[in-house]
Simulated scan of single mutants.
Amino acid sequence: MAMTTLACIIRPSTPPSRLIPLARAVEAAGIEEIWLWEDCFQSGGISAASAILAATERARVGIGVMPTPLRNVALTAMEVATVDGMFPGRLIPGIGHGVQSWMSQVGAKAASPLTLMREYATALSALLAGERVTTSGKYVSLDDVALDWPPARPVPVPVAATGPKSLRVAGEVGAGVVLEGSVGLPGLPATLERIAEGRAAAGKDGLDGFPVIQFVSGGTGPGATERLRAEVNGAGSDVADDEQLAGYAVWGDAQALADGVRRFGAAGADTVAVYATDDDPDFERLVAVLGEANELLGKDS
């Protein structure tokens, strides 16, 4: 079994002035992937990812995710291809249907987010594979569009999903799936089953080669469990004790964090992307302990 990848998330609530120092700290700790996401109306995913890639040497940067209603698919393809051309193979450009209330707020809400996702992911993947695309869908229309500077190799595009229908679509058109923290260990079995159904419907075999990226709350130091329990319950779960909390979060010293990552890996997560609570008093300390946990995980391979 391949080692589960431990990644670190820098939340969009982080001030832009802090992004590069924190990203450099993550890379210095030996963590190979840094993940971001776009929340209205905070940091932009492509701009933040580009700056972090330029300021680091090896780390891969995932965006989990960019909301499709906000972005014309051709523009997304241009931006992703440009970044990949500068930093080949280091950008993981995830897409999702966005938070519907925010999409309404900016006048971009789609009547059928699933239709949009199916059309968008299909067109984006084709453009990033260097294809010339003509399509006329409900939401995505392209007339003889091809990138002048396509990636040297196709760039995989994972899709975020939560509900059963969106999970099936992710399996059908995505090159991986991004799962928010509310899924957790209790939700992973049914989640993976729905994804597999979508892949089967598209004539694809199983989940081999289909990365599952699970976001997980994490913490270390005094008060970590209290902060994490408040975070997890605030996101809609109902955990009353540490045993239940372990289904959604990892915490403690390096060994405990490594053991937590292993739990999620054994349940089917290929990447466990850990994010601190917004009220964590020392993100750099968490990064350092995650780096130690990553070393322990490396001994598994």
Rank of each mutant, 00 (worst) to 15 (best):
66 M>Q: 07
291 G>E: 01
293 A>N: 01
113 P>I: 11
176 G>I: 05
230 A>C: 00
152 A>E: 14
295 E>G: 14
18 R>G: 06
185 L>S: 06
257 L>M: 13
230 A>F: 04
142 L>H: 09
117 M>A: 02
146 A>V: 04
75 L>N: 09
214 Q>G: 02
189 P>E: 04
181 G>Q: 15
281 P>S: 07
180 E>V: 11
181 G>N: 13
35 W>R: 05
81 A>V: 07
136 S>C: 13
104 S>K: 15
110 A>N: 08
53 L>P: 13
288 A>L: 01
70 L>W: 09
86 M>D: 02
174 G>H: 04
254 A>D: 12
1 M>K: 13
297 L>H: 09
81 A>E: 03
211 P>I: 09
46 I>H: 07
229 R>K: 12
243 E>A: 15
88 P>R: 12
226 E>N: 08
76 T>W: 03
134 T>I: 10
262 R>V: 15
202 A>K: 00
68 T>W: 00
18 R>K: 12
6 L>K: 01
296 L>P: 01
15 P>H: 12
121 A>W: 02
61 V>D: 08
211 P>N: 09
212 V>L: 05
10 I>T: 13
150 P>E: 11
134 T>Q: 11
22 L>V: 11
293 A>I: 03
102 W>D: 15
166 S>N: 06
139 Y>E: 14
79 E>W: 04
183 V>R: 10
296 L>A: 08
7 A>H: 04
250 V>H: 13
285 R>H: 12
270 D>H: 15
186 P>M: 09
279 D>P: 03
104 S>H: 06
294 N>Q: 05
109 K>M: 12
115 T>Y: 00
206 G>A: 08
192 L>E: 08
171 G>K: 00
71 R>S: 00
90 R>W: 06
202 A>T: 08
2 A>Q: 15
55 A>D: 10
182 S>M: 14
248 Y>R: 04
280 D>N: 14
8 C>D: 00
110 A>E: 05
238 D>S: 14
265 G>V: 02
272 V>R: 01
47 S>P: 02
216 V>D: 06
115 T>F: 00
164 P>K: 05
194 R>E: 14
283 F>N: 03
26 V>D: 04
12 P>K: 11
211 P>D: 09
145 V>E: 02
284 E>C: 02
245 L>E: 07
11 R>H: 11
184 G>V: 04
150 P>D: 08
